[in-house]
């Protein structure tokens, strides 16, 4: 697996395709084929299907992995690994059995759990601790935005693993509870319980930082 250099999260618009390859959606007249159809095209050797699937799924996989792991480089490795498993699954994929996006989320979550287990048995990765922003380079509003962002991320990392996964999928990825249940392979009631407990814990963790985060006037 390629070791990728860590880069900070950035707010950017969707960029053009990579390495000059056209997107399938540019060829198709409508919104584009389903993930299932793209996966079948991929299995049949269509290279553009890989580009389209990567553009659809990799950002979501990376977002979830970054939130759950708190480490960009590790999240990129997990994303690449999850996509590789998708490519290998393509030839045997049964359309309609599961949503491709649900499947990739599940793989990402499992890879994150595996990674954390391995780390608990070994060393602590210093890269997992978010770096504080440089105050000298930023306007006060930007500093407060970054402080909030980092505060939320640090608070998320203090949650138990399953709570963190459920909260990220529900409140940041905005997935429905039944889909989260499918991803985490638990009941909808268990999802509701995990998210509720996760939110209560986050509120408690963040309680002491209310003024610092700019909520004193709310």
């Amino acid at each position: 697996m390629v070791q990728l250099q860590a880069t900070p999260l950035t707010v950017t618009s969707r960029q053009p395709p990579y390495r000059g390859m056209p997107r399938v959606s540019e060829v198709a007249a409508d919104a584009g084929p389903s993930d299932d159809a793209l996966l079948k095209l991929f299995a049949n050797g269509e290279a553009r299907a890989a580009v389209e699937l990567t553009e659809r799924l990799a950002p979501r996989a990376l977002a979830v992995a970054t939130r759950v792991l708190g480490n960009r480089a590790e999240a990129e490795d997990v994303t690449q690994d999850a996509m590789m498993r998708l490519w290998r699954q393509a030839a045997e994929w049964q359309p309609g059995q599961a949503k491709v996006s649900t499947w990739i989320y599940r793989v990402v979550m499992n890879l994150c759990i595996d990674l954390k287990r391995r780390q608990r048995g070994g060393h602590i990765d210093l890269d997992a601790i978010p770096e504080p922003p440089d105050p000298g380079q930023q306007a006060p509003e930007q500093m407060q935005d970054n402080a909030r962002h980092d505060a939320l991320q640090l608070a998320l990392l203090q949650l138990p693993e399953r709570q963190r996964q459920a909260v990220v999928l529900r409140h940041i990825e905005e997935l429905a509870n039944p889909e989260i249940a499918g991803i985490m392979e638990i009941s909808v009631e268990a999802v509701e319980s995990l998210t509720a407990r996760g939110k209560r814990a986050l509120t408690k963790i963040l309680a002491g930082r209310r003024d610092e985060l700019g909520y004193s006037d709310v």
Partner: peptide, 24 residues
């Protein structure tokens, strides 16, 4: 805070996209 977090998409780097497409 959740809403602000949703406004910060994790855009994969070109290196990551290239690596994924090479795997594909």
């Amino acid at each position: 805070l959740f809403a602000e977090a949703r406004q910060v998409p994790a855009r994969p780097s070109e290196d990551l996209m290239a690596a994924i497409l090479a795997d594909a």
